[in-house]
Design a protein around this nucleic acid. Structure first.
Lengths: 117, 117
DNA sequence: CATCGATTTAGACATCTGTCAAGATAGGCG
DNA sequence: CGCCTATCTTGACAGATGTCTAAATCGATG
């Protein structure tokens, strides 16, 4: 829990680097948490991977054994995390990715990956 | 929930592309879920960002208002997600990133980001 | 305008999660 | 051997989460 005020051993010396600010950590964690569910990750991959640039809920729902309301719930979580936006056109609702939000996640993860390698 | 067998309207046509397999989605979601918590994201950023390539629990704990056991719990979650490994040396435990695991996450996220742009 | 189909909202319920206090474990040191 | 410090494990508990059914909404269409 606490380290010696003066590093008597050359183990366990402090790490005086800029730490990820709490606010940023909370913000990013919200987004990562949103994709931290198999259904939502699959939904996001279907939405981002759709060649039309958007995906219809009717198509999404068919790819799961989950009920409609449950899919709707997961889409709402992704929406509230700022990762996708939804729009109603005619009888159907279409979802499309929010590129900036996804970019933010990649921009956090990539440096970690590089630093770790 | 269901789409017409033959696309009578040119809206809501099926998306016949390879969908992320459930097993892969579950596996990746586990890892994303692990970093879907502010404390754990901050921990991971401290561990991956440490110039020594590893971080001592004693340093990590000091950066939080959380208790020791809670930090330990979060480190365990990251460990069980395969994102970090821990090793005991002398009195202290050191954690280091698992590059392959982080790379897997980036490799999923980056294409989504690009496709969405 | 009455109805129908697609989607979301509301409510309920079991399970999972984050947190802490208290006890266990594991090396180093006297 | 027995204490001390650092870390982890256990047990408990409030709160969040995933899922469903039933009901509401919202366009389209007859």
């Amino acid at each position: 829990m606490s380290k010696p005020l003066l590093p008597l051993l050359d183990d366990c010396v402090p790490t005086p680097r800029p730490v990820m600010p709490d606010e940023r950590a909370a913000d990013l964690a919200r987004a990562f948490k949103a994709i931290g569910d198999p259904a939502r990750l699959k939904l996001l991959s279907m939405i981002t991977g759709d060649p039309r640039g958007e995906a219809c809920v009717c198509d999404l729902t068919d790819a799961f054994t989950l009920t409609g309301p449950t899919i709707s719930h997961h889409l709402k979580v992704l929406r509230e995390a700022g990762l996708i936006t939804g729009e109603r056109r005619a009888s159907w609702v279409y979802y499309r990715p929010v590129p900036e939000a996804l970019a933010r996640l990649t921009e956090v993860l990539a440096p970690m990956t590089v630093a770790a390698a």
